[in-house]
Amino acid sequence: MGILDYANPTRVMRFSRAVKPWVGGLGAIVLAAGLYEAFVTAPADYQQGETIRIMYLHVPMAWLAMFAYALMALSAIGTLVFKHPMADVSAKAMAPLGAVFTAICLITGSLWGKPMWNTWWVWDARLTSVLILFLVYLGIIALWQAIEEPIKAGKITAIITLIGAINLPIIKFSVDWWYTLHQPASVFRVDGPTIYPAMLYPLLICAVGFALLFFFAHLVAMENEMKRRRVRAMQMRAARRTTPLPTTRPAEGAA
């Protein structure tokens, strides 16, 4: 079995319990440092003023939303190709996290856009792509909820996740294309090509902090999912226990 053998539920659980506090603790420290830098040390933008600080939330969320989808797609390959039970536990734990990152990204984008564009929403190419990613996340979560059997749900969702992984770049490309076609008069580019180091470092520290927090949450969610599955396995076992019928009445009915 090789490396897959290391990923049995018992080992993952043990690993998760050992690693979780460290990941969480480190994440909290890095994030605190990052947010301090972002909200206290980092300079305000000469044009946008203090609102630039939303960037330290908004951009890492956008990165993590995509990162989570990439990991989910990897898990989907694990489910479909290696048929590994831990792969769909991982994928299932990932979906709500990705959706939350995407939602925060959209909300912060909207808050950031309000003073810039004087409206809560613009059909900007980036925001629109993130909105579609959000829709895909929600669809995948709904799919997880719709199928009762966890294994079947895992496989079906893995297929949709992979189709999404193939399609999201196509969607991104088409939305960018669509946006340039309908280019409005002049939209202020909120995140231009250059960024000052004084802003970049806090941004990267925040991103690392949020990523650690994400791994922590993912471990917690995986543990919960494993427990949920264990309960279900127990119930399936309990249902299989056969109670012998009274011998006087033969069993009847269709198979």
């Binding site: 659980m13 043990r14 494993m226 427990k227 264990r230 309960v231 279900r232 399936m236 076992r237």
Partner: peptide, 22 residues
């Protein structure tokens, strides 16, 4: 077959996790 004493409580606390149907 699971023993009578095996219930949801042990399911949640035990260290051995198994996933049926694989």
């Amino acid at each position: 077959e699971p023993g009578e004493a095996e219930g949801l409580a042990t399911a949640l606390s035990g260290d051995e996790y198994w996933l049926e149907g694989r």
